[in-house]
Every structure is written in C-alpha cells, then in structure tokens.
Amino acid sequence: MTRKKKALVVAIVLIIAILLISLAVLTTQQRDDLTFVEKGLRIVASPIQHAISNLGEKIGGFFGAFTDYDQLQKENQELMLQIEELSIANNDLQEALLENIRLKQMLEFKDATSNQYTLAAAKVIAENNNNLQHTIVLDKGSDDGIQNNMVVINHLGLIGRVVNVLSSSCEVVLITDRQSAVGSRIWETRETLGVVEGMGSENTYLRLIHMPHDADIEIGDKVVTSGLDGIFSEGIPIGTVVEIADEVGGLTKQATIEPYVNFYRLEEVFIILNNKGSGN
C-alpha cells in the first residue's frame, strides 16, 4: 500500500470514528421515538423473544445449576424437607408451587393496591444488562394499553418505567440504569427529598443524591418515591439506606440504597395503568 493510500485509509477510519462517537453522544438518553429500522428489528424479535422465553424456562433449570449453585443448594435443602413432609418427589411440581407462591404474592399485592392503582401483570421476556444500560422487555404492549413512562413495580417495590412500546411488547428502563432518576424521600421523616439514581456496571445498588447537608437520615431508613418527578407516583417502596456519605464539597449528602427488588430475578411484574390515588 502506498503512503498516499495509507493516509486515505487512516482519514476514512477517523471520519467514521468521529461520526459514530457523535451519534453515540446524541443518543445517550432513551428516545421516545425509535427509527423505523429499530422498530422493525424489535417487532420481528418480539415473537421470537416470547418463544425463546417460554422454551428457556423449560430447560433453564439445567443451566441454573451452573449459574447459581449456592441458591440452588439452599433451595434443594428446602425442597428435600418438603419432599419428606409432603411426599412431593417432583421438580416440575415444585417449580409450579414456587410460581404459585410468587403469583399469589402478586395477586395479594394487586388486591391490596386495587384502590390505589389499576395494574396489568406482565412477564419478562428479554433483558439487556451491560455496563451502560439496564433494561428489560415485557410481553405487554400498546395492544394491552401500555404507554410510555408507565411505572413498573412488583410486590416488593419499584422496578422502572416503560420507554419504548410496540404492539405486543415494551421496553423498561430499570431504576438501576445509570440514566434513571427517581424523585424520592425518606419514609420515616417524609421531609428529606433527594433523587435516586442507578450506579450501573452490573451494580444493583442505588444512590440517593442531592439531599440537604443537614438531612435527617439514618442507616436502615426506608426510601420511597416522592412523586415530585411527575412520572413515579408517591409512596412506592424503593429500598433501604445502607451507607451515608457527604458529597464532594460537603454541601449535600448522598446515601447508598439497597433496593427491595432483586433485579437478577425478575420474572413477573406489574405495570401501573392508572394511578387512582392521584388521578393520573
């Protein structure tokens, strides 16, 4: 290759790099409207994700043994006890039993909150968790009345908000995502206001920032949504304070929050269709 040709190649590579970096900077935030190519790719992927999700559940148990040995061992001990007590020597039945417990908890939660919210149950069919973003895909879409910015919860607490809606699926940004920001307060004092944001990087802990320096906050305090951000309605549990520190400069405080929801084990969730409490 001649020197001139080499210089041309380097120039082309640099131009492409600059264009792509610019594009990445422009698209750091979740967009309300995807391009038709992105929508097309997701529409085609949606039924495949549904099918694979169902298939994965059937054969997931085998691989689960490798991924979560401790948990499996604990569950196995519990199962052994139950096998002795109830003579249920069947893994499928145990799986159904666990699912039943989970769904029962969700149903109790739905009943308990029926005065406050209208909820739609949804199943997680895909996940996209990496260093830059934490999102999940649910099996409910615009056909089921799902819209952008609807809040996603389960019986334990806040999960995230809907960002992209297709006809039969939707994408949810988890509160552990770095771009996520939730107006929140300390449940005990009700006066301390701050913003809960994700820490990213496979980290499921959250950070409560922008609290006043003299904020009345202690380790073990419960954190709930404040409702002031206009998206997340008031009073949804987020997590517990596990660490408190001064922010750089010392003018404000920040705290590390351990969320109530286990983001590694999301299977069934609720989408808040209607907040009867505030009339949203």
Partner: peptide, 15 residues
C-alpha cells in the same frame, strides 16, 4: 440498533 441507546459505540468497537 437492538440496544436503542449509545448508537455507534458497538459499531466503532467491533469495526
């Protein structure tokens, strides 16, 4: 395109 955010970062990386 499948991720929907930070368009171009994987393209550049894999390129």
């Amino acid at each position: 395109l499948m991720a929907g955010r930070f368009l171009g970062i994987n393209a550049l990386c894999k390129g």
